[in-house]
Design a protein around this nucleic acid. Structure first.
Length: 259
DNA sequence: GCGACAG
DNA sequence: ATCTTGTCGC
């Protein structure tokens, strides 16, 4: 039975959330903190995590919160967990974390309890880090709550601080020739909020990478590129596959299937 | 007033 | 996020 999402929260809630973001933002570390991050080949990096919340068709409350851990550099799944959850907060641009992060942090806690040796050394998060209205997107939020290095990986440019997917931006995208090419996303304030990254040779549409926690931007971009077999980095792509299929059913087998 | 706006 | 058909390319 599909339930309706709550409407836009009252302004009191949004101001509470805004204050919480400001409080936690003070804990963000936006530079490399781990030895492997400075290594050209990331030697010492063995586990990369991915998290995602996927949805049930026609239901804005029921969702599937998933966490995967992949080996590095092989990018093979070594841990996976999915759990059906009931979302309480609605989606509001700029406050995505209040909808998704509690369930993602829970998944990390369960991993810590069950298989602490498989704890990822970094998590790729579907969404932004400091590329955010108040410099504290979902990747920062999860990073601060878990203490783990996190990277924000967004598929669309969040319009913030003057950043816009306009003609000039599209021109810059055209100049990205090969996988790994990138350009800085500089806001009107002069701050570099993130990088647009061509994630592999045959992908036109860039990813928008920003610092989440305990990692510098250049390292975040370099690692994201190393995790891309296709446009979407493997940790995020794999975790999506563990979510709910369209309508909550497995895909139909082909009509003609040689069995 | 209306659309835009990470997921 | 999800709703959807065709279409192009490997």
């Amino acid at each position: 039975m599909a339930r309706k999402a709550a409407g836009r929260p009252p302004k009191e809630t949004l101001s509470l959330w805004t204050r919480e973001q400001a409080r936690l933002k003070a804990c963000v570390v936006d530079r490399d903190t781990e030895a492997w991050q400075g290594d050209p080949a990331f030697s010492g990096l063995q586990r990369v995590g991915g998290v995602d919340v996927s949805f049930v068709k026609g239901d804005s409350v029921s969702a599937c919160a998933s966490l995967v851990v992949l080996s590095y550099p092989e990018l093979k799944v070594v841990y996976e967990e999915s759990r059906m959850v009931s979302l309480t907060a609605p989606y509001v641009s700029g406050f995505l974390a209040f909808r998704e992060v509690p369930f993602l942090a829970d998944a990390v806690r369960r991993l810590q309890a069950k298989e602490p040796g498989l704890m990822p050394q970094v998590i790729l998060v579907d969404g932004n880090g400091v590329l955010h209205h108040r410099g504290f997107g979902v990747a920062c939020h999860l990073g601060v709550l878990t203490g783990l290095p996190c990277i924000g990986v967004a598929k669309k440019l969040l319009h913030v601080d003057g950043l816009e997917n306009n003609a000039l931006h599209k021109e810059k995208i055209q100049l990205l020739q090969a996988g790994g090419d990138s350009f800085p996303l500089t806001g009107s304030s002069g701050t570099v909020l993130g990088m647009a990254l061509r994630s592999h040779d045959r992908s036109t549409k860039p990813l928008y990478i920003s610092v989440g926690h305990k990692m510098g931007l250049e390292t975040a971009v370099r690692l994201t590129h190393r995790c891309c077999r296709f446009r979407i980095p493997e940790p995020v792509r794999q975790v999506g596959g563990h979510g709910v299929w369209q309508g909550g059913r497995a895909p139909l087998l082909p009509t003609i299937f040689p069995s």
